[in-house]
Design a protein around this nucleic acid. Structure first.
Ligand code: SF4
Ligand code: SF4
Lengths: 163, 163
DNA sequence: ATATATTTGGATGATATATATCCGTAATCA
DNA sequence: TGATTACGGATATATATCATCCAAATATAT
């Protein structure tokens, strides 16, 4: 039950892109440099975000990644599901149908109480993730993060967007 | 983000043990037969439950597994944590400390907003799991499950506890 | 005491998933 | 045309999950 590390990368990339000046984009090379993660592997995750519409891309010189819609309308759940898929963590393997107590298939129309309880807990998790937008995370970071770090980030970004 | 299949097995074993007549125990061989899962691997999971105090064991002839406390005081969270551990699913790798925007370690005393949001969602998941007891699952099953299946289970159990 | 039944934990192997890299192709811009 | 970039398929490596096996400890019955 460990989440993919790529989820953390993807969220960080989204918050960085959200802080980007309007009309600019960051290529995967710069995103991987900023976060100090392997470029090719990060590219795979960004492609997942792209397929999900969370980011938009333009190819060619000056191209790269930017948010696909306003940060207010991108939730943590969107990002998590884009990277990890929408399958429930708890997989029902229907073991109740096997073994000596099994009866005809007609008795198993409805998922059993165990599965329902597990899925219901997952639903609560997803609801919480849905409440948090990328915009909220950016706003929070703007208040909490060391000003020195923000300054360093901005000057590093200007080396990109400026030339 | 898939949960271990062992969690499902463990929950099923707990509900079966909860339905057992007072004073009886089931050895791993019978539990694996009932659920049609590999015996040696199930034994590993049961040992985790045993270490967590969820089940009690007695060795030797007539021995086996029984619940370690009343089913009203065993929650799904107890079982999940016994099998999967208590580590958070979202692992913070502190990537904010790397890359070109990193500043001194003093700036990173507090977990960032991303990690806090992810962990908060996990907390909601755990709270939901904590609300569901094994006793509640058994009661629910007694109402919902096909009477024919219950009858088959009982007669199969009698072949154990009876001799 | 002895034989039998059972859990326990360590060691080991097999399989699946996550992580990481590479490369050819397509798209875009100067 | 040439440079830059995203995309997707193929492949390799590392790690985690799943599964089996075995020796030791413990309990019961005879
Ligand atoms: S939890 Fe219930 S429904 Fe899900 S696999 Fe187990 S038996 Fe089947
Ligand atoms: S989420 Fe924030 S705190 Fe957690 S690893 Fe990423 S940067 Fe570090």
């Amino acid at each position: 039950m460990k989440m993919s590390e790529g989820i953390e990368w993807a969220i960080h990339c989204c918050t960085l892109l959200a802080a980007l000046p309007e009309g600019t984009a960051l290529p995967v090379g710069r995103l991987s440099e900023f976060h100090d993660v392997p470029k090719d592997y990060l590219a795979k995750h960004l492609q997942s975000l792209s397929r999900a519409g969370i980011v938009q891309t333009t190819r060619g010189p000056g191209g790269g990644y930017r948010l696909g819609r306003p940060a207010e309308r991108i939730t943590l759940l969107d990002v998590v599901e884009a990277i990890d898929g929408k399958d429930p963590c708890f997989q029902c393997t229907e073991i109740r149908r096997r073994g000596p107590s099994a009866v005809g298939a007609a008795a198993y129309k409805k998922p059993c109480g165990i599965a329902r309880a597990m899925w219901s807990a997952e639903a609560a998790w997803r609801r919480e993730l849905q409440k948090v937008t990328i915009a909220a995370l950016v706003a929070q970071a703007a208040e909490e993060v060391d000003p020195k770090q923000i300054e360093k980030s901005i000057s590093w970004l200007e080396r990109t967007t400026g030339g």
